[in-house]
């Protein structure tokens, strides 16, 4: 790699990271009522419990933090899985990891487990995500064709969706059955700071596990044997990526539902910008995902729809045609 390319990459990361941060900051100014955000922030910093300060700190701040961190998780996990499976269609939503996480979280929440022990909610999501990821790896592991991967994902998605539905049906609470849309489509409406505190630490651990695999992922593009001869332990790499993405995605889904397609679209758009190197794609996709999700979340708040559109609806409306285009291109390329 030439120093020039390194410099360009640093520039890209800086630009994406700055844009994501700026949009998240700007999202604090967008909501359903108008108030002076600066006064509210001064009140909050001075410990004054004014209504504006409450709205800023308890409602808009958690929404911005979760939007950015969940977007980061989805972009990063998409890039990591695409690198690991060496398949451009791997995305936590498409291959069923998010679906598994949703079932895990639903099981923890509606049984009342998370009411007794708050951490059970993200941990349930993580457990579901790990089970899905393992099932996927068993069905369509290393180097499997795109068709196998997608079919495995369809099967896992259907199965976890059915289990989620079953768990909601079994709940004696009359509202539960109507909440499937939240779990399958995702939303950031009225999230709270305690939810940030529950999910963010797990996400950060997952991020570190994935980001630290960058060099190994680059080596993997040379083939498994070459990567191993270069001294990378592939078993360890797989575990780190599966566990890392499951931790981050599981915790995300547990507080915001399964938001699809961010992990598919963002790495794709950024791949040409990082010289098609999967290791470099990781951090760039993370920032790109954060940027994309916060913008989408701004979108659902600005659109004059009542009740608010689910965030996953917007990402799927953009992402699903994108997936179709990819499939179409793949068909054309392989005769």
């Amino acid at each position: 790699m030439t120093p020039g390319a390194d410099k360009a990459h640093a520039g890209l990361l800086l630009a994406l990271g700055f844009a994501a941060f700026a949009v998240a900051l700007a999202s604090l100014f967008v909501g359903y009522v108008h108030f002076d955000v600066f006064t509210a922030a001064r009140d909050a910093l001075a410990g004054r419990d004014s209504i504006e300060a409450l709205a800023l700190v308890q409602l808009r701040l958690p929404r911005a933090i979760l939007g950015a961190s969940i977007g980061f998780t989805l972009g990063l996990s998409g890039a990591a899985m695409q690198g690991l499976l060496r398949n451009p269609l791997a995305d936590p939503g498409v291959i069923g990891v998010s679906g598994g996480a949703a079932f895990g979280a639903v099981a923890a929440f509606y049984t009342g487990l998370s009411a007794a022990f708050a951490l059970a909610l993200p941990l349930g999501g993580v457990a579901g995500a790990i089970l899905s990821a393992l099932a996927l790896y068993g069905l369509a592991g290393r180097g499997a064709g795109t068709t196998t991967l997608i079919l495995a994902g369809v099967a896992i998605n259907s199965f976890t969706g059915a289990l989620t539905s079953l768990a909601l049906n079994l709940s004696p609470n009359p509202y539960a059955v109507f909440e499937i849309m939240f779990w399958l489509m995702g939303s950031l409406a009225d999230r709270s700071l305690p939810q940030v505190a529950l999910a963010l630490p797990l996400m950060v651990v997952g991020w570190i596990a994935m980001l630290s695999s960058a060099r190994a992922l680059d080596a993997l593009t040379l083939g498994e044997d070459t990567a191993e001869s270069l001294g990378f332990d592939l078993r360890r790499l797989r575990w780190k990526l599966v566990a890392g993405s499951a931790l981050a995605v599981g915790a995300s889904v547990a507080v915001a539902g399964a938001i699809g397609f961010v992990g598919l679209v963002v790495p794709h758009l950024l791949r040409p910008w990082v010289g098609h190197r999967p290791g470099r794609l990781l951090l760039a996709s993370g920032f790109g995902g954060a940027l994309a999700l916060v913008v989408a979340d701004l979108g659902v708040r600005v659109l004059p729809l009542q009740p608010e559109l689910k965030l996953g609806v917007l990402t799927a409306l953009v992402g699903a045609p994108f997936l179709l285009a990819l499939v179409f291109r793949a068909r054309r390329d392989e005769p």
Binding site: Y32, V33, Y110, G112, A115, S171, P172, N173, P174, A176
Partner: peptide
């Protein structure tokens, strides 16, 4: 939205007391 409720400067907020038993996102 909760934001609008916070902004209202009302004297009284009437919230449903929790439905006994199973949890739900609604409550």
């Amino acid at each position: 939205s909760l934001e609008r409720i916070a902004d209202l400067d009302a004297d009284v907020l009437i919230a449903n007391s929790e439905i006994a038993g199973a949890p739900s996102l609604a409550t």
